[in-house]
């Protein structure tokens, strides 16, 4: 089964934490119509600083799909379309 992993790096302390998370979840939901499986991994930077270092994250929020990085809060439909395009062959 083809799986696309979406990683959201976000701070628990961010004022837009809930909103950002909802937007990304919505995008993943939309994408599921065209992609067999979309896995969302939310990384709270306070909990996992090693992972933040490993992925060389500077700015937040950051959405990582493959090697594509979106800095800022993405629009769900645009992100969903991109996830769709990112489906492995």
């Amino acid at each position: 089964m083809n799986t696309v992993t979406v990683r959201l790096f976000i701070s628990r302390e961010s004022a837009t934490y809930n909103f950002t998370r909802q937007q990304v979840e919505r995008a993943c939901e939309h994408a599921r119509s065209s992609v067999n499986q979309v896995r969302l991994k939310v990384v709270e930077i306070e909990k996992d600083p090693e992972l933040v270092e490993r992925y060389n994250v500077e700015a937040l929020p950051l959405v990582l799909v493959g090697d594509k990085r979106f800095v800022g809060i993405p629009k769900p439909d645009e992100l969903a379309a991109f996830i769709g395009l990112s489906q492995p062959a």
Binding site: V52, A59, D67, K68, F70, V71, I73, P74
Partner: peptide, 18 residues
């Protein structure tokens, strides 16, 4: 990060945390 795009407002919370 060659494939990075700015799609909205951001902060350097991650860099500060690192």
């Amino acid at each position: 990060a060659e494939h990075q795009v700015e799609v909205g407002e951001y902060d350097f919370g991650a860099l500060i945390a690192r």
